[in-house]
Design a protein around this nucleic acid. Structure first.
Length: 826
DNA sequence: AGCACGCCGACT
DNA sequence: GTCGGCGTGCTC
């Protein structure tokens, strides 16, 4: 007899402060089938609310503990995470201050997710009178019974809470459960992934709908706006409808209730269709330099020892050829390989190339796959059918077996760092996996992150360099234009005289140009010409930005939107746009070159209908003279006819309060300048800046990474930034500003007192703050933070973890939540 | 976080 | 007496 088993389980309901493996009794019926890595439903906390968990280990119940709670349901037929993956989840908790369950969730495809729904159900054969009798005199009990009978004998927990408003339905529910009138049931339905969209379609003929609503234009303006828009479109995504009309989902629901429209879930994204009929490619041909790199790297893979290398290759040096050959060898030896890219949408050529070399053996994983397809790809990978995985950040968790090689292409890209909990960095996860699997981690870039280059120079990573451009084409001449000078000579626009002159020449020759605006989001603010007031978000401490697509002012933090007012709300003055956006530059270009067409590519013009691929195809086909865009135009574009590349404002990203600002700017400018003159016609680049003497800009203009690195690494050393020290940012958020600030101050005090005595008095640690977060208020919560700069060791991580637990337990911190980030992006 | 328990004042 | 407010402490 095996005896009773006890499972140690990581729970979804546990917050960071109380996260640990919880023990549950394994029911005998499932003792044979349950294994670590399976998900289960268990009762948790005093209310025994049902929560999901993942089994970490199973062991004999010694000594027996009869009153322990039992597992309610087993959700999986086989483990979704293997032993290595579970260890990775535990490591992630330690490294990024998340719960084990948070980590596990990040590792699994969203399509695999269950959404648990708790429902209270009347027991069979109970009639209303007996139920009422069981409630005694309780008013809530009566209300509850009436509701349940009205709703057909069952109600889900959220429905009940809503119906009860401020009152608590729980006591009455517990009473009725104990009297045997009700039971709590949990249904686990496959969660629809977040890439599902609600689509609204008109349910009645447009004429009829308009007839119904014309009279209601005044009384129900939002409903009217929705109906009007739907009449012209027929159907549209709910999100878009709300975006364009300012309606909320409640408006749509009430229209659905009236029978005017139907709402249904539809998956919006398609799988990246692998190019069909691609000819199978043969062994890649390498030049001498590539061959040397390949041989060195292949030897590292074959060593069967964990290793890491940096492949530093200038743009156009053919890093991809090296990847392909390495992966071929890995496959021949029966291993598997993982290739991470910053953004899948920007790499169609790479996908084509990989499918030419590896055909059906490739698997693609990224966030815009449909939930089902993502799940299918995940299964194909797990079964070993797909042995080469190409994907974005989260693909770093791909369940490959016999993993011998992980490649991070453009390893310096910030997209490798997750913005949501857990805020892991794919590079670090990849490093961990390579150690686990005894494989090679290959970081690759034309402009490596300062951290990675430093480690390479320290000898922690093997360094391979590709300096030759494959066609040996010289770098384009780069001109730096001083915009201060322009301003002094009376030109207040974003287009310098030099740029206009170049554009004119270029167009006369029938060639094309790409203009790059170094600014995230390309947003515009509005200010009053009279009183200078700028509209702000009512819930967050940020200015609202104007979106031309829907004519509304929107908050980028909480999504609040309002129509653009006709005049300044406080003084009635005229409103003007401020700041530089792609739209403004587009208008200026149209003014300067009235007969020429300008194509704009930014988040506004790239939408569901206009993918950036389509836009780019149009740019190439129709030879539109000027393409203006943000980040998107910086990557991997290769057009024969583009002979001029211009950077409108090189310095905008330099002023970010982030130690990575220099690196980001350098990398972006280098990529953009590298775009010029890819074809046989040669070309030129032009950089407009207000700080022409800035070293980062001068280095980028010369494409001189080595000089940039030498400069930047000293700066980092001086400032105590990565790679020398990591920044642990503790953020306190609360409804009251004083509360958030106080929590930070108390953390600082606690920390200082710990640092005065053993064993921590030797620790070198700088404490910065408390300081307000870059956006102090988000969604009506104030955020303050404390930054610790220190080398990233187990000891300091344990200290941060302890600090978080203390802050959460601190009675003074009522209503305050505290979390920690490592080297956060903002 | 979320939930129950327990203590206190207000109202039938 | 009961209902509902909020402070306190725990979650296998």
């Amino acid at each position: 007899m095996a005896g009773i088993l006890v499972a140690k389980i990581a729970l979804n309901a546990a917050t960071y402060a109380i996260d640990k493996p919880y023990d549950y009794t394994v029911p005998e019926e499932v003792a044979d089938t349950l294994r670590p890595g399976m998900r289960v439903v268990v009762p948790f906390s005093a209310g025994n609310r049902h929560t999901e968990g993942i089994v970490l280990t199973l062991e004999a119940d010694r000594p027996p503990e009869p009153k322990r709670k039992r597992i309610l349901t087993v959700l999986d037929e086989e483990p979704v995470l293997d032993a290595k993956a579970l260890r990775l989840a535990l490591w992630m908790r330690e490294r990024w201050f998340c719960t084990v369950y948070d980590a596990a969730r990040a590792m699994l495809p969203a399509g695999l997710y269950f959404s648990l729904q708790d429902r209270w159900v009347l027991k069979e054969g109970v009639d209303q009178e007996t139920a009422l009798a069981a409630t005694g005199k309780s008013e809530q009990g009566r209300q509850l019974v009436e509701l349940l009978f009205a709703w057909g004998g069952q109600a889900d927990v959220r429905q009940l809470k809503e119906a009860f408003g401020t009152k608590d339905p729980n006591p009455a529910l517990k009473l009725l459960r104990d009297k045997g009138v009700l039971t709590l049931e949990t249904s686990a339905s496959r969660g629809v992934g977040d890439k599902v969209e609600q689509v609204a379609a008109l349910a009645i003929p447009p004429e009829e709908a308009m007839a119904q609503f014309t009279g209601r234009r005044r009384s129900a303006p939002l409903q009217y706006a929705v109906v009007e828009l739907l009449c012209s479109l027929g159907s549209a995504s709910a999100k878009e409808l709300c975006y364009f009309t300012g309606a909320s989902s409640a408006t749509l629901r009430s229209l659905a209730k009236r029978g005017v429209l139907t709402l249904e879930q539809r998956e919006v994204f398609r799988r990246v269709a692998l190019p069909e009929g691609v000819e199978a490619a043969g062994e890649p041909q390498l030049n001498e330099e590539q061959q040397r790199a390949y041989e060195g790297l292949d030897q590292l893979v074959r060593s069967g020892q964990p290793s890491a290398a940096l492949l530093y290759g200038v743009t156009g040096s053919g890093k991809t050829q090296v990847y392909l050959k390495l992966i071929r060898r890995v496959l021949e030896r029966g291993g598997s390989a993982l290739v991470l890219v910053p953004e899948i949408a920007l790499t169609p050529q790479l996908l084509r190339l990989f499918s030419a070399h590896f055909g059906d053996q490739i698997g693609v994983l990224h966030s815009s796959l449909r939930a089902g397809e993502r799940y299918d790809e995940w299964k194909r990978i797990r079964t070993g059918e797909a042995r080469v995985v190409i994907g974005t950040r989260s693909a770093v968790f791909a369940p490959l077996t016999r993993l011998q090689l992980i490649i991070l292409d453009e390893e310096q890209e910030p997209t490798y760092q997750s913005e949501n909990v857990p805020k892991y960095h794919a590079r670090e996860v990849a490093k961990y996996r390579c150690v686990q699997e005894k494989g090679l981690l290959l970081l690759s870039s034309a402009t490596p992150s300062v951290e990675s280059m430093y480690r390479a120079k320290q000898g922690l990573y093997h360094l391979f360099t590709l300096r030759r451009r494959y066609n040996e084409r010289p770098l384009p001449p780069v001109e730096i234009v001083d915009m201060k000078q322009e301003l002094r000579s009376g030109n207040g626009t974003d287009l310098s005289g030099a740029l206009k002159k170049r554009l004119t020449e270029m167009m006369e020759r029938g060639e094309q140009s790409i203009l790059f605006l170094n600014r995230r989001g390309a947003s515009r603010m509005v200010s009053c010409g009279e009183c200078g007031e700028v509209p702000t978000c009512p819930r967050c401490s940020v200015y609202l930005t104007y979106h031309s697509a829907n004519g509304r002012l929107m908050c980028h933090y909480c999504g609040h939107s309002e129509p653009l007012p006709d005049a300044c709300p406080s003084c009635g003055g005229a409103l003007n746009f401020i700041g530089t956006g792609t739209q403004k530059v587009e208008e200026e270009l149209k003014q300067a070159f009235p007969q020429r067409e300008v194509l704009r590519m930014d988040t506004d013009t790239v939408s569901a209908t206009q993918t950036h691929e389509k836009l780019l195809a149009r740019f190439e086909r129709e030879k539109i003279p000027i393409l203006i865009g943000t980040q998107m135009v910086a990557k991997g574009l290769d057009f024969e006819n583009v002979t001029l590349v211009g950077v409108i404002s090189a310095d905008l990203s330099l002023y970010a309060e982030d130690y990575r600002a220099g690196e980001r700017t350098f990398s972006l400018l280098t990529q953009v300048v590298g775009r010029a003159g890819r074809g046989t016609k040669g070309g030129a680049a032009l950089i407009q800046t207000f700080t022409p003497e800035h070293d980062v800009i001068r280095c980028a203009a010369r494409q001189d990474y080595d000089a940039f690195y030498a400069q930047e690494i000293e700066l980092r050393r001086l400032r105590g930034c990565p790679p020398f020290q990591d920044l642990f940012v503790l953020t306190a958020s609360a409804r009251s500003e004083a509360g958030a600030l106080r929590a930070c101050m108390r953390m600082r005090q606690a920390l200082e007192s710990w640092l005065r005595q053993p064993p921590l008095e030797q620790l070198t640690l700088r404490i910065l703050g408390p300081a307000p977060a870059s956006v102090v208020k988000v969604n009506d919560r104030y955020r303050y933070r404390l930054t610790l700069a220190c080398s990233n060791t187990k000891q300091i991580r344990a200290l941060v973890a302890e600090l978080l637990r203390c802050a959460q337990a601190d009675k003074e911190n009522r209503g305050v939540s505290v979390f920690a980030d490592v080297n956060p992006l903002d």
